[in-house]
């Protein structure tokens, strides 16, 4: 299934969890900060930024996380394995041309760039960048998708 997508957010919802996908609009190096090193990952226009919320929750944090990466190129900070703070986070970010959801991997402990942790109900979904939008395969029958329009308005007056 090809779903048209340009600058909008695409929300893929299950009954209790969701994925939010958006396309990168510029070439940039995304920095990944680990306790020992700094890496960079090249993001190309059209690549996907996907936020997964395995337990659901508010949509706004997912939108903000996607924009942190897409618009502000904010680095991703990687905590050491078994860091006590990891359980505080309920949104996961994956970036690349192809992203597949998986519910069997341990959250945040895998380096494979094409995988993102998800709920069981959305596991097995693959979102692939496509010139006309995104190609979605493996989406369960119970999931639905729709566009989300969101603009941040700041009034300094």
């Amino acid at each position: 299934m090809i779903v048209p997508l340009t600058d909008e957010f695409l929300l893929i919802s299950g009954t209790r969890s969701f994925l939010l996908a958006v396309k990168a609009n510029a070439l940039f190096a995304l920095r990944i900060e680990t306790p020992a090193k700094e890496y960079s990952q090249t993001i190309e226009p059209g690549d996907l930024i996907v936020v997964s919320a395995p337990e659901g929750g508010a949509l706004e944090p997912a939108i903000m996380l996607a924009e942190f990466v897409r618009t502000y190129h904010m680095p991703l900070i990687v905590l050491p394995k078994d860091h006590p703070g990891s359980k505080r986070f309920s949104y996961l970010v994956s970036v690349g041309p192809v992203i597949t959801t998986n519910c069997t991997i341990k959250r945040g402990t895998h380096p494979e760039q094409h995988l993102v942790c998800s709920s069981n109900e959305l596991a097995g979904t693959t979102i692939r960048a496509h010139p006309d939008g995104v190609e979605i395969t493996g989406l369960p029958d119970t999931a639905v998708h729709r566009y989300v329009k969101y603009r941040m308005l700041t009034d300094y007056s």
């Binding site: 990687v78 905590l79 949104y91 991997i105 959250r107 380096p111």
Partner: peptide, 12 residues
Amino acid sequence: MCTVGGGPTGDL
């Protein structure tokens, strides 16, 4: 790349 976020953070 899969990270967890409150901000874009992870425990890879």
